[in-house]
Computed example of a mutant assay.
Amino acid sequence: MPLTIATWNINSVRLRIDTVARFVEAYRPDVLCLQETKCMDGQFPLADVKKMGFDHVAIHGQKGYHGVAVLSRYGLADIDRKGFFGKQDARHVAVTLADGPAAGARIHNFYVPAGGDEPDPAINEKFAHKLGFLDEMEAWEALRVGAGSSRAILVGDLNIAPLEHDVWSSKQLRNVVSHTPLERQRLTEVAKTGGWVDMMRELTPEPEKLYTWWSYRAADWAAANKGRRLDHVWLSPALAPAMRGCQIARETRGWDKPSDHVPVIATLDL
């Protein structure tokens, strides 16, 4: 049976709940992982997502900032929310699928800090936070999935485009936060240490360009097409043989009141 899991930085779930409903109607994911929900747990639009068919929800929110959620048509167990770098920012939630074709699989939903504008941790606290967050991801035993039969999926807005063709111009963005050599190296090390497989690039290798984010600052985002791949789907080696397809829902960037990110939909044949 196939399992479809989507990841999307929605940039305020309450502001864009109609957009979420439109996407769900079009793509019918089994699991939808959202980032930057920007609301406290008690303000999350549960009634709306239940109307979409998501009877099982895990939320980690905070007022006005950050926030992650997992919406599922299947049961959820072992819900965990972890803070990183000495902060309690709502940037992570993990669940285990209790039933369905991927029963027992662990899903980690992440929203890695953006890092501010200056790529120097000595003068930019936000960039130091980002690097420290990545350090703790790499050190966390729960994200070591490379050995054995662990069935795990890591998704989210990781706020780094690690490869040359994950951005419109690697040369011009070399010193821009999200594509600096240091960030690219650190995210690659997190994946390598954990033993993760980059599903999007396994199915669509370089040099093909892949983007999931287009800036609001562009007068015509589609014509300029200056995108970056900031949103990711990683699999444990035990799940990698189930890879069937990975789709970027680019058209959602042109919908009314869009997020600057678009959903990525991964399909596993289990």
Rank of each mutant, 00 (worst) to 15 (best):
Y216C: 02
K226T: 10
M243H: 07
R228H: 11
P205V: 04
L203F: 08
D220F: 03
W213M: 02
E202R: 11
P205Q: 05
A219Q: 14
R229A: 01
S236Q: 08
M200F: 12
L230Y: 02
W214S: 02
A240F: 08
L239M: 12
A238W: 01
E208T: 12
P241K: 07
P207W: 01
K226M: 10
S236M: 10
W214Y: 02
R201T: 09
W221L: 14
L210G: 06
T212Q: 07
E202H: 11
K226P: 03
R229Y: 00
P205H: 05
K209A: 14
T204A: 09
G227H: 09
A222W: 10
K226C: 12
A224F: 04
A222C: 13
A242P: 06
P207N: 06
A218T: 05
P241Y: 05
Y216Q: 06
P205C: 00
P241M: 09
R228S: 13
W234Y: 15
A223W: 00
R229E: 00
A224T: 14
T212F: 02
P207F: 01
W213R: 07
R217C: 06
Y216S: 05
K226G: 09
W221P: 05
T204W: 05
L235M: 09
R217L: 12
Y216L: 04
W221R: 15
Y216K: 03
N225E: 13
K226Y: 06
W221V: 08
Y211R: 02
M243E: 09
A218H: 11
W234G: 00
A218Y: 12
A219S: 15
R201S: 08
P241R: 07
P237C: 11
N225C: 08
E208K: 12
Y216D: 05
V233W: 08
R201E: 10
R217T: 13
A218G: 05
E202A: 12
K226H: 14
L235P: 02
L210C: 10
A242S: 13
R229N: 04
E206S: 08
S215F: 11
R201L: 03
A218L: 13
A240I: 04
K226F: 04
W221Q: 10
T212P: 06
T212E: 07
A219R: 06
A242K: 14
R201A: 00
T212S: 15
P205N: 03
A223N: 12
L203R: 07
L239N: 07
S215Y: 10
A240S: 14
R201C: 00
R228L: 14
R217Q: 11
N225I: 05
A224S: 14
N225G: 09
P237W: 04
A218D: 15
A223Q: 15
T204E: 11
H232W: 11
D231N: 12
L230S: 07
L203P: 06
L239R: 07
E206H: 01
E202K: 11
T212W: 01
P241E: 07
L235K: 02
G227N: 06
L235H: 03
L210I: 14
A218K: 04
P237H: 12
T204L: 09
A222R: 15
S215R: 03
K226Q: 15
W213Q: 06
L239Q: 08
A242W: 14
E202M: 12
A222H: 10
L239F: 02
K226V: 01
K209M: 12
D220H: 08
T204Q: 13
L230V: 00
